[in-house]
Amino acid sequence: MTEQQNPAERHPTPDFPSQDQPHPGWTGPMDPPPDHGEETYRGSGRLADRKAVITGGDSGIGRAVALAFAREGADVLFTHLDGEKDDAAETVRWVEEAGRRAVPVACDVREEENCRALVDRAVSEFGRIDILVNNAAYQMSQPDGIEAISTEQFDRVMRTNLYGMFWLCKLALPHMPEGGSIINSTSVQAYKPSPHLLDYATTKGAIVTFTQGLAQMLIERGIRVNAVAPGPVWTPLIPATLPDTTEFGKQAPIGRPAQPAEMAPAYVFLASQEASYITAEIVNATGGTPLP
């Protein structure tokens, strides 16, 4: 049994050491190291023999979800960028240690043909897609305001966070059986946008709307669509995209950022049959920040 703890004291709290990485960022150099549930997550067979596709599964929330899904009995195909092969290998190791299949695929979801190839690979490997987790995302802080957001950056944020999700949902649907589940990653930024993340926050608001609309469209096919809205989470994206990480997460009422391991149970629940009456919902995991 997991020891009961004060949630504010369960994981490291700011101030953190100053650190900076080039995009996309890697897990190894982070201080403190992120917790993906490697030593703590205990499965109970809730996703036995499910076949899952997770974008951005090499690190952060995606790795924690892949690990948890595997320990719940699912096989996992996940995406990573070309520069993230070492992190992807670590995700493979943890999934395979859980006794499940891990299929890493280098894929940039900004291109429709890449998404098509990804779905084709998943069907070739697994025969079907029971769970689709749209988790890949891009952000880049621009403290100097909208004038500093280039068209190139805006396009990259939109295509990574929205286009990829749209294409993968559309392409995966013919291969999803009744009882399937789509889970999108939105953010506290959808409701309380930080000015320096204007373009990123815009996409996260759109993901909320897309999730709720698609859920109503697909329930007649027996497929549920939900989303998780994390608050600040300690992942490689943070030192790779924010100018100062020393106080990251301090603004949350809980006083610290979440660890990826704290997000994974929400995805497991939404993917499981225990959530059979839940669709078009946003599970807020914000560390105490009230949301609508």
Rank of each mutant, 00 (worst) to 15 (best):
A190H: 05
P236L: 07
Q251D: 14
E72G: 05
P12N: 08
A227T: 07
N134Q: 09
D49H: 05
A190I: 14
R42K: 06
P195W: 01
Q21E: 14
L197F: 05
P29F: 14
L214P: 13
L67V: 07
G73A: 07
A227Q: 14
P236M: 13
A52N: 12
I131E: 11
D35F: 04
K192S: 01
N226K: 02
E220W: 10
S124K: 13
M165F: 06
Y277W: 08
R10Y: 00
E96K: 04
F269V: 12
E274F: 04
S150D: 05
V233G: 00
R221D: 15
E111F: 12
R128S: 07
G287F: 04
F69G: 09
A206M: 11
T2K: 15
Q273G: 15
L214E: 03
D20I: 00
H80C: 02
V65K: 10
Y163G: 04
A148Y: 11
I278V: 10
V283T: 06
T289N: 08
M1I: 07
I219T: 14
A52I: 10
P243R: 08
N114A: 13
M1H: 14
G60A: 05
A172R: 00
V119I: 13
A252I: 09
C115W: 12
N226R: 05
I131K: 02
V119Y: 13
T241F: 02
P104E: 13
A148I: 10
D155P: 06
Q142Y: 15
M217L: 15
R46E: 13
A98R: 12
G83N: 05
V268G: 08
P232A: 12
R128Q: 07
D75N: 03
N226Q: 05
P7M: 03
S185V: 12
D82G: 09
P243S: 10
L162A: 08
G145P: 14
L47Y: 13
Q21I: 08
T203L: 04
L168P: 00
H23G: 10
V228E: 11
D244W: 14
F248S: 15
I207C: 06
G56C: 02
N134M: 15
P239Y: 03
P253M: 14
D130I: 12
P265L: 09
P239W: 09
Y191I: 04
K170V: 06
H196T: 06
F269W: 11
G180F: 11
L214T: 07
G288W: 01
E262T: 01
F126C: 13
L132R: 10
A74E: 00
T55F: 05
A252Y: 04
T186D: 02
V133N: 14
F78A: 02
P290R: 04
T91C: 15
L198G: 09
G231N: 02
H36N: 07
R71L: 09
Q21W: 08
E147D: 07
A8Q: 13
S18K: 00
E97A: 11
T2Q: 15
D155H: 11
D120V: 14
A261M: 04
D49S: 06
L162M: 15
F210M: 06
R10E: 08
Q142A: 15
D130V: 10
R159L: 15
P195V: 01
D58Y: 03
A102C: 10
L291D: 05
D130Q: 07
I207N: 00
P260F: 00
A68H: 01
G287M: 01
P230Q: 09
